[in-house]
Design a protein around this nucleic acid. Sequence first.
DNA 1: CTAATCACCTGAAGGC
DNA 2: TGCCTTCAGGTGATTA
Length: 268
Amino acid sequence: MPELPEVETIVRELRMKIIGEIFTEFIPIWSGSFVEDKKLTLNGRQIEEINRKGKYILFNLNKGYLITHLRMTGQLIVRDSVPDDKKHLRLIFTFKSGKYLLYYDLRKFGRIYHTIDSEKVLQNTGIDALSEDLDGMRFAELMKNKTTLIKPFLLNQKYIAGFGNIYIDESLFRAKIHPQTKVSELSPTMIKKLFSESRNVLLEAISRMGSTISDYKTTGGGFGTNQNFFRVYQRNGLPCLVCDTMIEKTFVGGRGTHYCPKCQKMNN
DNA sequence: CTAATCACCTGAAGGC
DNA sequence: TGCCTTCAGGTGATTA
């Protein structure tokens, strides 16, 4: 479900709602969603910080971490009570204050890890796409000696973490780069353009609370609005907003890929 | 090393 | 109405 902007939106809300909360009870409705460390206890632990790396959310406890990846359909919802309708509700965390953190996940792909070793969970996660340490130079550096295509490169979280299918298509469109361009064939100018446009795409999406296609919800159960501003994603068959050419859909790296055949040529 | 395919799950949508 | 196929904000393992 969520890519960086959706996860960032959730993190910002969680910080306002449950920093300082103390866990009192944990009810696994579908225990497959939870990866426990039997040496750790959750009850009595307090949430000190909530951070994000790529698409992971890290709850920094006074001992250990809860780390979650929502994959396709995971949702974190904060409520004052547990609703009667428990469809797709997988985990219930109860706080001392009486609040609840509810984990929903229709497809059961997501996980919440309870661990002391956050590095182990994040070992294949590269630099965050919005990290202050990621600039145009470093972005270009990461692309050096890569033989893959630009779309699979950006999908691979071990290089840069946070991009997913939507925002890659949108970023490549704005940078006027064909999704099947080889990374090695991108000029320094195009790489610079891709870096700055991808930041714009992510920051704009965050300002709109993310994109709700089907499952993504904010922690209060609300929706994002960025889906109303897509330029290519799911706009196949519709005219390009720049040149009126029909947006096409194909498959790159096994993922549905939307692009304008006129604006995004293989050679500039 | 990359690249393709499957696996993990459930449900919505479209074709017939 | 119903059955069947395909596809979906992701990623990890396996196979070629």
